[in-house]
Amino acid sequence: MYKVRLWSVRRSRFMEGLYNTVNPAIIAVLKGITKVFGKKLDKPITAAEAGLKGFLFDCQMCGNCALSKTGMSCPMNCPKTIRNGPCGGVRPNGMCEVKPEMRCVWVAAWDGASRMKDGDAIKSIDFAVDHREKGTSTWLKLAREELAEDAK
């Protein structure tokens, strides 16, 4: 939801804190779940992630979540899906070149990042997304990566 999304970016520092505490907890739980159930619960877990992040950030489930690096503003809402933005077309009032009724997600991102503890993360380059991961859960990906790490 556009309004909630703007709200989340305005409270980027709070959301960052929340994210930093909740995310590891979710991932820890998911590690347990995937150990027991394998891939059986992937669908509902993915749906839960899509629902929660969709509500808060208008998450598009790209499967390459970068929220913590983009001021809590989801870059996949950019009509050009720019991951290191903004483009040069931003309107003088900060609205999007393509959708004049939407605040440029990257104007929001730099603004959000300026309030975050780890806001400088926005300055690091985010390479183009892996399109195979569209629609998949970033939570499950992180959980499985951690499991693989643990197994090493």
């Binding site: 009509p79 050009k80 720019i82 991951r83 290191n84 483009c87 393509v98 380059i125 985010d126 390479f127």
Partner: peptide, 28 residues
């Protein structure tokens, strides 16, 4: 370059690709 939006041009019905952005393209 990232490129202008397709809607700005004479083929607004075209599919925008944007597999890269200008930064990823530069690195590539």
């Amino acid at each position: 370059l990232s490129g202008d939006d397709v809607g700005a041009g004479d083929h607004p019905e075209a599919k925008p690709v944007f597999d890269f952005d200008s930064v990823s393209l530069t690195r590539t």
